[in-house]
Design a protein around this nucleic acid. Structure first.
Length: 499
RNA sequence: GCGGUCGUAGCUCAGUUGGUUAGAGCGCAGGAUUGUGGCUCCUGAGGUCGUAGGUUCGAUCCCCACCGACCGUACCA
């Protein structure tokens, strides 16, 4: 045993979490619900490893021979850099490119898994988290993008989020590029600054974005963020496109066309968005999916339509404060990602659901069915001789054979009180008890711990509490499993009635 | 990354203008009770006061650095 001085300190690296039973079960349920939707849409699963060669992830800075910050990287024994994946899209592109001849396009596929980002963690932001993606590779038409949006909406509802408590917003990168072209912005750095500013619309409002598009903005801590440096005319034109617009699809189209006037790429984007709008209307999804020119969605590889699903319901956080939860998933068209590995163009579109983040939201909304796994029935140990122990083991197996979660007490059985205390804290619904007297009669006692707890409020003295043996019934050994089942069913009914 | 607030028992927090032995509640363990959870009572374990330097006769307290948490901001493929 290590002495005190050289004990290793047990500590979790920052930004990572251990997951407990309730979390894991809830995640499993969520994944199953999402998978069901993807399967219904005709998507098939595929899985890739967590590690990839770093260049396949595309994260080398041009002037460095080390991988970019933000990814966890390590060097293989042949000195090649490998990295933990930071999303599921780049590995999919690699997989498709590598198996191009075997894969039938359009390839409709989904996968779930952990991704890793070496960034500053925050509330609801971790360095390892789970995503659940769906993509269609080899489909150039906006119909594939429209399908993605509809599938995202269906996923939200499959998770129990009511229509109106979420919204899928769609934009097109070409529209944003178009307006920047139209106002004469050519510098890449300035373009990025503009996109970042637009992305902050829901955080800082129109006024904040205005500052960020122009000179810059000072935050509460006194820190100054340099702006994109646009002049007033340019700012007006960007804000006109991006600030909230209401209207019919045709009005919106007219309006956006005006904003990108003079840019061919912009007009193309407006046309694509309009087609998506038409498809969505035809499929009766207009109340769930909205064209919104302010969606930016990442900065790098998207080439066309981009979309984002956002929770709009008022969600209390752990402290009971109402917070805007924001985006829980998103995606878009990335026509360049696969072709990076191959000479020919390979169009693709897809999206990603942030499982960990969504789960926090569902938990705070109270829509996570956590408590529905019942703790096991506890078979207590009264006597330690082999005959008695054999009986207890037999009871336990009979319960299991009847499909009932059951365990035999494995701690120090000599303190019987501790066994019931254990059962109580574990949340066991029933305890099975057989001492020498019962054994002689071929009987066994079943104690209803839930009913017993209720009765405890009416009993004052400990002597009476112990002597009365509340909520206990005696049955023949051979009737044990049937009676346990009956009592569990009764408890389930009481729970349903009480809830 | 930048700016701010903070770090005392498993948890929530007192406390010391720099002074001997750092406390409470809750929780945990044992007992009152060798075959019955809760309640009540008794007893106990658990702290190098985030870590490492510095100032000082003396530091949990003052100074510096680092680590970590939280808030804002930047970045987020």
């Amino acid at each position: 045993m290590a002495n005190k001085a050289d004990k290793v300190k047990a500590r979790l690296p920052r930004g990572l979490v251990d997951r407990h039973a309730a979390d894991i079960r809830a995640t499993d349920k969520m994944l199953a619900a999402i998978r069901e939707v993807y399967e219904r849409y005709g998507f098939d699963p595929v899985e890739t490893p967590m590690l990839e060669y770093t260049d396949a992830l595309g994260k080398f800075l041009p002037d460095q021979d080390r991988p970019n910050e933000g990814v966890f990287s390590l060097q293989d024994d042949d000195e090649q850099w490998m990295s933990l994946r930071y999303d599921l899209t780049a590995p999919l592109a690699r997989h498709v490119a590598e198996n191009f001849n075997e894969i039938q396009l359009p390839y409709r596929t989904y996968r779930a898994g952990y991704v890793f980002r070496n960034e500053k963690p925050g509330p609801g932001r971790f360095r390892q988290f789970m995503q659940f993606d769906a993509d269609t590779v080899g489909a150039p038409s906006v119909a594939a993008d429209a399908e993605m949006c509809m599938m995202m909406a269906d996923v939200m509802e499959a998770l129990g989020i009511a229509r109106g408590d979420y919204i899928v917003r769609v934009n097109n990168r070409k529209v944003l590029d178009g307006v920047m072209e139209a106002i004469g912005v050519t510098d890449e750095g300035q373009k990025l600054a503009i996109l970042r500013a637009i992305d902050k619309l829901d955080k800082f409002g129109v006024e904040g974005v205005k500052l960020l598009l122009g000179e810059g903005r000072k935050d509460e801590s006194g820190d100054f963020t340099k702006g994109a440096g646009l002049n007033d005319n340019q700012i007006d034109r960007v804000l006109k496109l991006v600030a909230p617009v209401v209207g019919t699809r045709l009005e919106l189209q007219y309006f956006m066309s005006g904003a990108v006037h003079g840019s061919d790429i912009g007009l193309e984007g407006v046309g694509e968005l309009d087609q998506i709008g038409e498809l969505i209307e035809a499929a009766k999804y207009s109340d769930r999916i909205r064209i919104d020119p302010s969606v930016v969605r990442g900065l790098e590889y998207y080439t066309g339509p981009v979309f984002e699903v956002e929770l709009t319901a008022e969600i209390p956080n752990e402290k009971g404060e109402i917070v805007r939860f924001g985006s829980v998933g998103g995606g878009g068209r990335y026509d360049g990602l696969v072709s990076r590995f191959r000479g020919q163009p390979v169009p693709a579109t897809g999206f990603s659901i942030g499982v960990s983040r969504l789960m926090t939201a569902l938990k705070n909304l109270g829509k996570l069915g956590e408590g529905d796994v019942l703790a096991p029935v506890l078979v207590t140990v009264m006597d330690g001789d082999m005959e008695a122990m054999g009986k207890y083991q037999d009871f336990t197996q009979k319960l299991r054979a009847a499909g009932i979660r059951a365990e035999m007490y494995q701690g120090n059985w000599k303190k019987f009180g501790n066994q019931l205390k254990y059962a109580d804290r574990r949340g066991a619904p029933l305890a099975i008890i057989q001492g020498g007297d019962e054994r002689a009669n071929g009987e066994v006692q079943i104690k209803d711990l839930i009913e017993g707890k209720r009765l405890s409020g009416e009993i004052e003295s400990n002597e009476e509490w112990r002597a009365s043996r509340p909520a206990q019934v005696t049955v023949k050994e051979e009737d044990l499993a049937a009676k346990v089942r009956e009592m569990l069913d009764q408890q389930a009914q009481d729970r349903a009635g009480g809830a």
